[in-house]
Amino acid sequence: MLKIFKYSFFDLIRGKWSLIYFGFFFISSMSLLYISGDVAKVIISLMNIILLLNPLIATIFGVMYFYNSREFSELLLAQPIKRRDIFLGQYLGLSVSLSISFILGLLIPFAIFGIFSTNQVTNAVTLLFVGTILTLIFSAIAFYIALRNENKIKGFGTAIFLWLFFAVIYDGIFLLLLMTFNEYPLEKFALVSMIFNPIDLSRILILLNLDISALMGYTGAVFNQFFGNMLGISISIFVLLIWIVTPIFFFLRSLKKKDF
């Protein structure tokens, strides 16, 4: 697995897309920091970009990479190594190379502008963490979708739809349900709903720092318990990790039976 990881990582990190991805984050965070002196504001803007773009890019690249390396995967499948190792290696190669482009794209401007010595350090670290986790989650989901769909158009379509679903539609449905049933106690429903969407969960992890004062304005005991101490952060991180493991698990399960 590590060997496959090594070569696919070298392959991807040298590719032009890694550079473009890095460049995008580098330029946008540099210019945001340069234009606006207010670091907290920049963090909010970057949060919006990351929550939108990291899942999208990981999804598209995941599907694309899987389909593009199909023939090579077949060559590898004829080698005396386990299937699992081949694809886990490729998955890691992709998600780690994307993550590194992303992390460096933010880290360098942050370091240049000395953000790590301001009170925004927690927010900055949370952003890096959340962006990386989202990359890991959505490239795993993309791999799974690509594996399950021989038809590339269908695979791409499904993946993009899933992204759109998690990024926008899910919240819309959620809000609709909340407003329809607002006579009922919805506290637990609200929290549990957030858990089933990794993008929402990541957002909440950032909110726990950024908007804790507003979150504490809600009366419910469950909210207060969740947002008021480390419990919320721990649960969020734990569930995000489950969100990485789950698609990988389903991927590996399907892989066993897959015909190439």
Partner: peptide
């Protein structure tokens, strides 16, 4: 114990030929 020549040749784009040869020997 099997050598396999696939019909279509597609490899990781950004690896060099020598690296690809190395990779397969590494895996074998």
């Amino acid at each position: 114990n099997i050598s396999y020549l696939p019909q279509i040749a597609r490899f990781p784009e950004n690896l060099k030929v020598s690296e690809l040869l190395e990779m397969i020997q590494d895996l074998q």
